[in-house]
């Protein structure tokens, strides 16, 4: 682990966990093309939306990436593809060595339960479940769904990590927004995923809590976790080490975050002074 810290988590020397090659996604929105009562009049007119027009990129283990862009820029589509919630129209998507673009629905589910951790804007906890059960949810969809002794211990460990070990039997509605999001973070870690996807993770939180959550994500990244977040807030994006900007379905900018540049400057400055 100290190894990762020494590399400053820029991922330069680590193995590639995500590789996208010329990824395209096109939606066809039919207008009366169903051949229904008004099918003829619609004339089979189909609206084609090119959400992604050829995206190629690589994420290495331990990277902390923010994907930015306005609505319609294709960042949501990007997130859905990254999260294996959807399949690309064309192109290649390698996640942890597997080509997931070709998988069927059940196999994609399997990948989601084993290799991806999700953190959502609105926490998305199951209301009738306790903290423990929510954290363990991804495990119930693996194999025979039995929670092993080991997994129980891991749950405790993660609950301690996010500071909720004394609220294991609480339900989401007994927790504050920040606490719920911490449960979601613990949940995203339970399956030890290749990547953690955070979709506007602080969107519903006040700035103090946002800071708390972001520093927690920062610590996870420091510990070697690969984090990819989608946001439209520049100050949140700055917590990341790499920022990708999207517009009209293509990447328009990809580089280190301003925070990194500052640090880099300081290092250079120190070198110069020395």
């Amino acid at each position: 682990m100290s190894d990762i810290f020494s590399r400053k988590g820029d991922g330069a020397a680590d193995r590639v966990v995500v590789r996208m090659t010329d990824l395209r996604k096109t939606y066809f929105m039919g207008h009366g093309s169903g051949g229904g009562l008004f099918g003829k009049r619609g004339g089979g007119e189909v609206l084609t939306v090119h959400a992604l027009r050829g995206v190629s990129l690589e994420f290495r283990e331990g990277e902390y990436v923010a994907i930015m862009g306005q609505s319609g820029s294709g960042k949501s589509t990007m997130l859905n593809l990254l999260g294996c919630l959807d399949r690309p129209t064309s192109g290649e998507y390698i996640l942890g060595g597997y080509d997931v673009a070709q998988l069927d629905d059940d196999e994609l589910s399997e990948v989601r339960s084993r290799s991806i951790g999700f953190i959502f804007q609105s926490y998305n906890l199951i209301q009738q479940y306790t903290v423990t059960e929510n954290i363990q949810l991804p495990l119930t969809y693996q194999g025979n769904g039995i929670i092993s002794e080991e997994a129980q211990e891991r749950t405790m460990e993660l609950a301690r990590l996010v500071g909720l070990h004394d609220r294991l039997d609480h339900r989401p509605n007994q927790l504050s927004g920040g606490q719920q999001q911490r449960v979601a973070i613990a949940r995203s870690l339970i399956n030890d995923p290749y990547i953690i996807l955070a979709d506007e993770a602080t969107g519903n939180l006040d700035s103090a809590t946002s800071y708390e959550i972001m520093s927690m994500l920062g610590k996870l990244n420091d510990a070697g976790k690969t984090i990819i977040m989608v946001t439209h807030e520049p100050d949140i994006a700055e917590y990341a080490k790499r920022i990708i900007r999207m517009k009209d379905g293509v990447i328009v900018e990809d580089g280190p975050s301003p925070r990194m540049l500052v640090e880099l400057d300081e290092e250079n400055h120190a070198e110069v002074v020395a």
Binding site: G83, L85, D105, D106, S109, F120, N124, L125, I126, L137
Partner: peptide
């Protein structure tokens, strides 16, 4: 619906 979405995102198959 949303709960179903969450479960699917976290790895539930259609069968589940």
């Amino acid at each position: 619906t949303r709960e179903i979405g969450i479960r699917r995102a976290l790895g539930a198959k259609r069968g589940d």
